[in-house]
């Protein structure tokens, strides 16, 4: 039986459809999880929080979404050891919800940046870079305005680092996991690097972490 991935949708979520396509491209089943619902769809094996501008980025990026009714269910899923990945705004939501360490700040460029980036695997023991060893390099695009991770890089479980720390993240962090490794967030967009036609398939490596 294929893995069922719940893909969250908040008002202002932009990458729901691309995330669904990427998940389906890995042979998994994608189902929509609506922000106002209190439970994840029946049969959910893993959760994906896609990018976008949930609630218009009002207050702070991810702040309102982190308190949406669906997030209680996401928290329970994570605490039970279920896999959760947050991409871009989804990463911001997971940090705001306290499911991941640190916070995302304004880019040090003081501008939105859309660029293909090289990422180095920093920890090859999480589920999110299967088959790659520490130091391996993958190519995935970023596109954000508040993508500089700030936190304690000594205690956080860093999964991916930028080779070029363009945005000014602490310790060049591009993605971090919780201590158990089942919850991961990253600013780069793996769902947009799942097709050779678009320039890279490295995103499939990261999203494969959703599939048990």
């Amino acid at each position: 039986m294929s893995t069922t991935v719940a893909v969250l949708r908040f008002p202002g979520t932009l990458d729901h459809d691309s995330a669904v396509r990427a998940v389906e491209g890995l042979g998994a089943t994608a189902v929509e999880a609506w922000h106002a619902d209190a439970a994840l769809p029946a049969g959910t094996d893993a959760v994906l929080l896609p990018g976008g501008f949930s609630y218009g980025d009002h207050l702070r990026c991810g702040a309102i979404a982190s308190r949406a009714p669906i997030m209680g269910a996401v928290r329970r899923h994570a605490e039970a050891g279920g896999r959760v990945v947050g991409i871009c705004n989804g990463f911001q939501v997971l940090c705001e919800a306290g499911l991941l360490p640190g916070a995302l700040r304004r880019n040090s460029t003081l501008s939105f940046v859309c660029r293909q980036m090289e990422l180095e695997v920093a920890d090859d023991e999480t589920p999110w870079t299967p088959g790659l060893e520490t130091g391996a390099v993958i190519s995935i695009p970023i596109k954000n305005n508040e993508g500089a991770w700030y936190g304690d890089a000594g205690t956080a479980r860093v999964v991916l680092r930028y080779r070029d720390n363009l945005l000014g993240s602490t310790d060049a962090v591009a993605g971090v996991a919780n201590a158990a490794g089942n919850v991961m967030g990253l600013m780069p967009h793996p769902e947009e690097a799942c097709d050779a036609l678009l320039g890279s398939t490295d995103g499939q490596i990261v999203l494969a972490g959703l599939i048990a």
Binding site: L14, S18, F112, C114, H189, E191, C194, L197, L198
Partner: peptide, 25 residues
Amino acid sequence: IYERYDHLVGANTIRRPGGDAAVVR
């Protein structure tokens, strides 16, 4: 200019800005 614009969202951009024309799947 174009790095300030999200030119990838939707995951259909085959040829990005900077060339003769953009190509979108």
